[in-house]
Design a protein around this nucleic acid. Structure first.
Length: 598
RNA sequence: GCGAAUGUAGCACAAUGGAUAGUGUAGUGGCCUCCGAAGCCAUUGAUCCGGGUUCGACUCCCGGCAUUCGCACCA
């Protein structure tokens, strides 16, 4: 056993995890060896190729030659001639078209890669170099307290969690921070309403529902200019001044809300490290005002403290309002304090905020301000990313508003998804026990909802539709999970454990077209991870997994796994085991749960 | 008014400046005596309009058109 592990470690040192990155480095070395013009500036630009051109292609020769008035084909030949001969053992190298360099993995090289990366730990070890030693804070979900989570809250939670898992897989220490909307003017109205109309019975049975009712009633009862609004404002002042009764009520609202949110998070597989909402920063904004004033970044305009950015076409006149004229803070104040806390306290190298695109101006102004502020005060500069997505709209194209009455609660959405999945699994697999079918329905239903958001990149608006969100055909969670279940089924039938080295030991290199296509796809996993994590766009991984599942299905239809020939059986078992490993690893990275039968 | 995002087959989406723009769904035609047909194979069909940059543009730049959103004390 120990010898076997040592052998695999040895192999891992000699078989690169990310083949594209390895080829890129090899071509740079070759360019130096060949002494091409400006070799140090040569960027090979190796990327995954379309299958008909091989496995990887280098596009960089064209640009390099063009810029220096060289013949691109001749330059390509020069570089290819200087490639380390050892590379030729693994790839068929060719020059095509105006000067593309193509690399096609030989079957033996495919086998070596598949043999080497045979566990989740090795995949993780291969990917973890990208962000080793880095700390990233991810700010996502971030609902307002005293209201239920509705369909509009889904995207931030689902996309944010997938980004957390991708960052962690690529080596980062990830801090999940739920930046709750738990402070502000709405609490004056809520306390006002609570004191008059709370229904203790309702509060005991469904607290968040009752708080939401009270908030709506409080809002309706306090129109502009009314004495009731004045009363609500007095309640807010009492809360802000630390009146014990008010603070106790506010704390109760927060506790009730968090408990309700947690039920949703549990179903989505989300566990926050911190829930540092706006209230957490209420004592930290004075320092922000002081520093922005001292560094002359902020000025007083119409009584408010604002920041302008003279170099920016729009923000030279559109102010970033960091303190209201009445002296109160707003979300710019607390977001600035939040950026400071994440940088100073968490030592963040990167901060990711996941919200809908309507807040793009705010975050652009925030990041510009933070950059100048931290420069002026000689602080570290974390990478700042605003990850946006389109708003959820109704069929009419209008945004679903919180107060419009017909919002869809997240709890109801998940329930409906699970019910639909249950009906489907019952139809497809009536022999399973009800308990098994319930378990499967939870994974398939919730996964379908999660994957609906993760399978597309769109920053355009998301038109809400039950049918679209819960679709079970095509590039969807059920299709991916079905592939997983079928692979498990083969191992059950064979009485074998996926990944057991003894069933793969006699494996020969892939031979049939379907085996080769599948094996080639498996080696592209590192590139999919790289792309998804660098761009903070999980759909790149989702699309890869869908293509992998498709290649597996074709293989599964064309090539029988449990055949008598031991070499063929071993290599097909290995292909099944690796497909399973990468599908399960990838789906987990997207935040989905997987299953063994469905 | 200023600004941003989006615009790809009937519908829904993909394409990190690269080679003949990929997929799903719907349509059409095949495949269950065969490890799970929630599947596989084949096939029809598209870059909003007009310029420009580039060896090469869905992608970058300029000008339109359409949809959605933002723009001083909500978050």
């Amino acid at each position: 056993m120990r010898a076997d592990r040592a052998l695999r470690l040895h192999l891992a040192m000699h078989v690169p995890f990310n083949l594209a990155a390895d080829l890129d480095a090899a071509l740079k070395r070759a360019a130096t060896v060949a002494s091409i013009a400006d070799a140090s500036a040569f960027s090979p630009e190796v990327r995954t190729a379309e299958a008909r051109h091989g496995d990887f292609q280098a596009n960089g020769v064209l640009g390099h030659a063009k810029a220096r008035k060289l013949n691109p084909r001749a330059l390509a030949e020069q570089i290819v001639g200087a490639i380390d001969p050892a590379l030729g053992e693994n790839y068929v190298v060719s020059i095509a078209g105006p000067g593309f360099i193509n690399f096609a993995l030989k079957p033996a090289a495919l086998l070596a890669w598949l043999r080497t990366f045979d566990s989740a730990a090795l995949l993780r070890a291969g990917a973890a170099a990208a962000r080793a030693e880095q700390t990233w804070v991810v700010d996502y979900s971030s609902p307002n307290t005293a209201k239920q989570m509705h369909v509009g809250h889904l995207r931030s939670a689902v996309i944010g969690e997938a980004i957390c898992r991708l960052l962690a897989f690529t080596g980062a220490r990830v801090i999940r921070d739920n930046h709750l909307g738990d402070w502000g003017t709405q609490f004056g109205k809520l306390i006002f309403a609570y004191k008059r109309w709370v229904d203790p019975q309702a509060l005991a049975t469904d607290a968040i529902e009752e708080l939401e009712r009270l908030y709506k009633r409080g809002n309706d009862a306090t129109p502009d200019g009314s004495p009731e609004l004045e009363e609500a404002r007095r309640e807010l002042v009492k809360l802000q001044n630390g009146d014990p009764e008010s603070v106790a009520l506010w704390q109760k609202f927060s506790d009730v809300s968090l408990a309700a949110f947690q039920e949703i998070y549990d179903r989505l597989g989300i566990a926050f490290d911190h829930c540092l909402g706006e209230s957490f920063y209420r004592d930290q904004v004075d320092r922000v005002y002081r520093e922005l004033a001292e560094t002359k970044l902020a000025e007083v305009s119409d009584g408010a403290l604002v920041v302008f950015h003279p170099e920016h076409p729009r923000f030279k006149t559109q102010p970033f309002l960091v303190r209201k004229a009445d002296g109160a803070s707003n979300y710019a104040s607390t977001d600035l304090a939040t950026a400071l806390y994440r940088t100073d306290h968490f030592k963040a190298d990167g901060i990711v905020v996941v919200t809908d695109f309507r807040q793009a101006d705010h975050f652009e102004q925030l990041f510009l301000t933070v950059g100048k502020w931290f420069t002026a005060t000689a602080r570290r500069q974390p990478e700042l990313h605003h990850v946006t997505f389109g708003a959820v709209t109704g069929e009419d194209g209008k945004a679903l508003k919180t107060r419009s009455g017909d919002v869809i609660k997240l709890k109801a959405l998940l329930d409906e998804a699970v019910e639909r999945a249950f009906a489907l699994v019952t139809e497809k697999n009536p022999d399973l026990t009800e308990s098994e079918r319930r378990d499967i329905a939870r994974i398939v239903g919730v996964g379908a909802v999660q994957y609906a958001d993760l399978s597309q990149n769109r920053s355009s608006n998301y038109v809400f539709s039950w049918d679209k969100m819960l679709a079970l055909d095509g590039n969807t969670a059920p299709y991916l999970l079905y592939a997983v279940a079928r692979i498990h089924s083969i191992f059950r039938r064979a009485g074998a454990v996926p990944g057991d080295p003894s069933i793969e030991s006699g494996a020969t290199p892939p031979e049939t077209p379907e085996e080769i296509t599948l094996a080639r796809r498996l080696t592209k996993f590192p590139d999919a991870i790289r792309l998804a994590s660098e761009t903070l766009r999980p759909h790149h991984l989702g699309l890869y997994l869908f293509e992998l599942a498709g290649d597996y299905s074709s293989f599964n239809s064309a090539d029988k796994v449990l055949v008598d020939d031991p070499a063929i059986r071993a290599r097909r078992m290995m292909l099944c085991a690796r497909t399973l490993l990468i599908l399960e690893t990838g789906l987990t990275l997207l935040g989905l749960r997987t299953l063994t039968r469905m």
